[in-house]
């Protein structure tokens, strides 16, 4: 291992692949035992991925369907129109809307999820390891471990993290609409976009039970924001797979990443024809 890699591991250690594989294979094995027809299927070593997203700004209309779908999918409270909560509402997918300088120009639109940086400052500064890098490229969170110091919030150059300033509150209708696949977060905990990690894991488990890997077609509109976008502007997939749509789009001449000079290596690419 090179000295640089050793040092990087020291500051942002990745969980051991062996442990993760063991647990996943154990789950698959136990499922294989329970379902007799799959007993002969041997668990295969899962391919390492680099999950990423490409957002086509030339297609984006600023409708914010991605934001609404994200809020719905991930049980994000809104606290109603009470102005006390201005600036305190958690936001995982934000729509940045910048008015143009010229009156006849279009506004700049920027859907902003978490960048799931490969070298994230938020992971380095967390004092208890409540956020960490998954080998598949997710910047994961352990909500139960968070002590609410909010260091990751101020460390993120994209300000993508939100704090639960109070207990989440739901109207009776919203309570019925909560997604059982995603935990709600208590007061005092920092949260952010997870790339709908629960959907990715579900897809991987279903594919493993069927004895295969998920295909790129299944991944392209997997997160709630990608699924909801009416303009098909958001694509999700494995950046390390050269045949995937995200890998091809990220190599496009229109592609760029935000704040690249900071060295965070974000996993979200934007496409824009005219960057003037």
């Amino acid at each position: 291992m090179s000295l640089r890699r050793w040092f990087t591991q020291l500051l942002a250690p990745e969980p051991s692949p062996a442990r993760r594989d063991f647990l996943r294979n154990a789950a698959t094995l136990s499922a294989a035992v329970a379902i007799p027809q799959l007993a002969s299927a041997a668990p295969r070593a899962r391919r390492r991925r680099h999950w990423g997203m490409v957002i086509d700004l030339d297609r984006c209309s600023g409708c914010n369907a991605c934001g609404v779908a994200c809020r719905q999918e991930n049980n994000i409270p809104t606290y109603g129109p009470d102005p006390t909560f201005d600036g305190a509402r958690p936001e995982w997918m934000s729509m940045l809307w910048q008015e143009p300088e010229r009156a006849d120009a279009l506004p700049s639109l920027l859907p902003l999820p978490c960048m799931h940086c490969a070298d994230p400052p938020c992971v380095k500064v967390c004092p208890v390891g409540a956020t960490y890098k998954d080998p598949d490229g997710f910047t994961m969170q352990v909500w139960d471990r968070c002590i609410g110091c909010r260091y990751c919030m101020v460390a993120c150059p994209y300000s993508r993290r939100s704090f639960n300033w109070t207990e989440p509150a739901w109207t009776p209708l919203e309570l019925q609409m909560l997604n059982p696949d995603v935990a709600t977060r208590p007061r005092g905990v920092v949260e952010k976009c997870t790339f709908c990690h629960h959907r990715v894991r579900k897809l991987q488990e279903e594919a493993a039970l069927a004895g295969r890997e998920p295909t790129d077609a299944e991944c392209q509109r997997l997160p709630a924001c990608a699924q909801a976008c009416p303009a098909n502007a958001i694509t999700f997939g494995d950046l390390d797979d050269p045949d995937s749509r995200v890998a091809k789009l990220s190599g496009s001449p229109r592609a760029f990443r935000l704040l690249e000079h900071l060295g965070t290596e974000p996993s979200v690419y934007y496409l824009k024809k005219d960057r003037g």
């Binding site: 004092p127 002590i147 609410g148 110091c149 639960n164 007061r187 005092g188 905990v189």
Partner: peptide, 27 residues
């Protein structure tokens, strides 16, 4: 008083604090 979850903080920091965070030096 600033910690979002002070009980968790006081219990977890002695067990899980990471030196990569400047807060480790503080605590």
């Amino acid at each position: 008083a600033d910690l979002g979850r002070p009980g968790h903080g006081l219990l977890e920091l002695p067990a899980l604090a990471r030196p990569s965070s400047p807060f480790f030096g503080t605590f």
